[in-house]
């Protein structure tokens, strides 16, 4: 084992120093083995319209319904489209690698709670024992058209 070690260390050093290109191990593929995505297989690139971005913004509330947001989104969709052409007929979705295992059930006893102080310790605004929220169910104030590059959204 030690002999082998010394031998190989020397070999590695040799190769490092020389920086030679050499023949690869036969099992290592010499060239990339990637199935190029068939361009025809891809669905047409999705363009996001005003309605969709407004819907998404309402569902996301990240103030990103602007040009930059749309660009990112369209890019993400384009990348995701790579999987749409894959043949998955007869394949069941795999939600979790633990799908064959079963859910642990705990006993019905009180083991938590009664820790209001801890639960509320990180809340920025509280009112006595309550959390505080503004009034809800008021739709977002309409933003400017999506063509504006909204600089007010944080760029870090």
């Amino acid at each position: 084992m030690n002999r082998l070690l010394k031998h190989n260390t020397t070999l590695i050093k040799f190769w490092c120093l020389q920086g030679n290109a050499r023949l690869l191990n036969s099992k290592i593929p010499p060239i990339p083995v990637v199935k190029l995505t068939d361009e025809n297989n891809l669905p047409p690139q999705t363009k996001i319209n005003q309605e969709t971005i407004e819907l998404l913004e309402r569902l996301s509330l990240v103030d990103f319904a602007n040009k930059r947001g749309i660009e990112r989104l369209e890019d993400a969709i384009k990348f995701a489209d790579l999987i749409r052409g894959i043949d998955t007929s007869g394949v069941e979705p795999m939600i979790s690698v633990l799908e064959d295992r079963t859910l642990y059930l705990r006993d019905d006893i009180v083991t938590e709670g009664n820790c209001r102080k801890e639960v509320m310790s990180n809340a920025a605004v509280t009112e006595e024992e309550y959390f505080v929220a503004p009034q809800g169910n008021i739709p977002l104030i309409p933003r400017d058209s999506l063509l504006n590059d909204n600089k007010s959204s944080k760029q870090k």
């Binding site: 019905d108 083991t111 938590e112 709670g113 009664n114 209001r116 639960v119 990180n122 024992e129 309550y130």
Partner: peptide, 27 residues
Amino acid sequence: TSKLFSGAGTEFGAPVNTNVSLFDAAI
């Protein structure tokens, strides 16, 4: 006696925010 996904208590009329575990507050 306890909640669906956490071990906090369930009795009606408990003081405000006492039957709340960290999970219930989505910590």
